[in-house]
Design a protein around this nucleic acid. Structure first.
Length: 288
DNA sequence: CTTACGGCCTGGGTGC
DNA sequence: TGCACCCAGGCCGTAA
């Protein structure tokens, strides 16, 4: 489940391998997740890959065309749930469900594999890509504390739904929403507007912390996720709630629960993260 | 406008 | 051995 830390890890791996490489050939498998498959076959060969960056959960690989037209295009990739974007030696075995292979001029290959094909790939000019990205919210690693409180704290939706909303914050998914809420001791069903300034500041701090720690650990590998050279992440070893239903909370020992919030499995500690009802009941006897 | 919810895409895993 | 079923995450349409 590639979220911000996983996509960032892939972006860094690609940024170390791709810039300056020329595409010498393209092979496609299934193409129903590609916006305009013939365009890849037509425009990529001869093109030079110039830069790699991440925007939310999207990867943007800048491509300088070979065809006398020096205007850059970008290969936009969203990994969906099971997408893997790797650079491997051409001789390395192909992962199952590899659907895009770009042969590069140094004997390596840029490969996209995606068993479920929930990912998306678009090759287009910046002005064509811009509308796809214009709805994205703030980067959770860049947003200031004040801006975070303003954008999140004024809303009546439950906090988990807001964290997952890419138009509010770009890049947060189910794992890091649950992990940061546990660290900030906020129940996922709490309404954002009812969180105090203190809780919001705690959430902002812990969201940052969890994302940075996860990047340092190379992301979370639950099932399919791997980095750009095929390596698994290690942050799943440090999950406190995600996927730990029934296991003891590492802070208080209570059993971690799973419930459906905003249509998503949500893991939380029923003791450390008080439900909205319990918080209201307790608000008369407990200050703050 | 905001929010909630159901359905869709696909295939791996599970349980009968 | 097969097979129905559930689930994952993002996105979109619809309803209130």
């Amino acid at each position: 489940m590639p979220e911000l830390p996983e996509v960032e890890t892939v972006a860094r791996g690609l940024a170390a391998a791709l810039p300056g490489r020329r595409v010498v050939g393209v092979r496609l498998g299934k193409t129903d997740f590609i916006a305009d498959p013939p365009r890849l076959s037509r425009e990529l060969p001869g093109g030079v890959l110039r830069s790699v960056r991440r925007l939310g959960k999207y990867l943007l690989i800048e491509v300088i065309s070979a065809k006398g037209d020096s205007r850059a295009q970008a290969l936009l990739v969203h990994l969906g749930m099971t997408g893997q974007l790797t650079v491997r030696a051409a001789s390395a075995p192909l992962a199952p469900h590899t659907h895009i292979i770009c042969a590069l001029d140094d004997g390596s290959e840029l490969r996209y594999a995606d068993p479920r094909r929930f990912g998306r790939v678009v090759l287009a000019r910046p002005e064509e890509i811009e509308p796809l990205l214009s709805g994205l919210g703030a980067d959770p690693l860049e947003i200031s504390r004040a801006e975070f409180c303003r954008r999140v704290g004024q809303r009546r939706a439950c906090i988990k739904a807001l964290l997952l909303d890419q138009s509010v914050l770009r890049g947060v998914g189910n794992i890091y929403a649950d992990e940061s809420l546990w660290r900030a001791r906020i129940h996922p069903a709490r309404l954002a507007a009812r969180l105090g300034r203190t809780r919001l500041v705690e959430l902002h701090r812990n969201l940052r912390r969890v994302l940075l720690e996860a990047i340092r650990s190379g992301g979370s590998s639950i099932s399919d996720y791997v980095g750009a050279s095929g390596e698994r992440g290690r942050y799943q070893l440090r999950h406190r709630v995600y996927g730990r239903e029934g296991k003891p909370c590492q802070r208080c020992g209570a059993g971690i629960r799973r419930t459906l919030i905003a249509g998503r499995s949500s893991y939380f500690c029923p003791r450390c993260q008080r439900s909205p009802k319990a918080a209201r009941r307790g608000s008369h006897s407990r200050p703050g």
